[in-house]
Amino acid sequence: MTTFKLIINGKTLKGEITIEAVDAAEAEKIFKQYANDNGIDGEWTYDDATKTFTVTE
């Protein structure tokens, strides 16, 4: 398992979430479901060097 981080730069929600996932594809699926569940819709980026996803509304 690898640790992945999501940085949320939303209009109403900001913060960071860290999860353990098998790979970046699994982490992205989990993070996008979390964002969808919380009404966050924005532009996604991923930095493989730091294993960090960012979503900006």
Rank of each mutant, 00 (worst) to 15 (best):
Q33G: 15
I8L: 08
G15S: 12
K14D: 07
T50V: 03
V55K: 00
T52D: 05
Y46K: 13
I40H: 14
A35G: 08
E20C: 03
I40K: 06
I30N: 03
I19H: 04
G15I: 10
D41N: 14
A21N: 15
T50A: 15
T2C: 02
E16R: 08
G15M: 05
A21H: 06
T54I: 14
D37P: 02
G39Y: 11
A35Q: 06
D48W: 04
Q33P: 05
V22P: 05
K11F: 04
N36R: 10
Q33D: 07
F4E: 00
G10S: 08
T56H: 10
Y46P: 00
F31Q: 00
A27E: 00
L13G: 10
E28F: 12
D47G: 12
D47L: 09
N36H: 14
F31D: 00
N36V: 13
E43H: 10
E57I: 08
Y46I: 08
E57T: 14
D37K: 15
W44T: 01
A25K: 15
T56G: 04
Q33N: 01
D37T: 15
G10W: 14
E26N: 06
K11H: 03
T50D: 06
T54N: 07
K32D: 11
T45A: 03
E57F: 14
E57H: 15
I7M: 12
Y34C: 01
E28M: 11
Y46H: 05
E43F: 02
E26Y: 14
N38W: 06
A24N: 13
A24I: 10
E16Y: 12
I17W: 01
E26A: 15
M1T: 10
K14I: 08
G10M: 05
I7K: 13
E43P: 08
A21I: 10
I19W: 11
A24Q: 12
T3Q: 04
W44A: 01
F53S: 01
F53T: 02
G10T: 09
W44F: 08
T50W: 06
Q33K: 14
K11N: 13
M1S: 13
E28V: 15
T56D: 06
N9Q: 10
T52C: 01
D41F: 08
T52A: 11
D41T: 12
N36P: 03
E20M: 05
K5Y: 05
K14T: 04
Y34L: 06
G10V: 09
L6D: 00
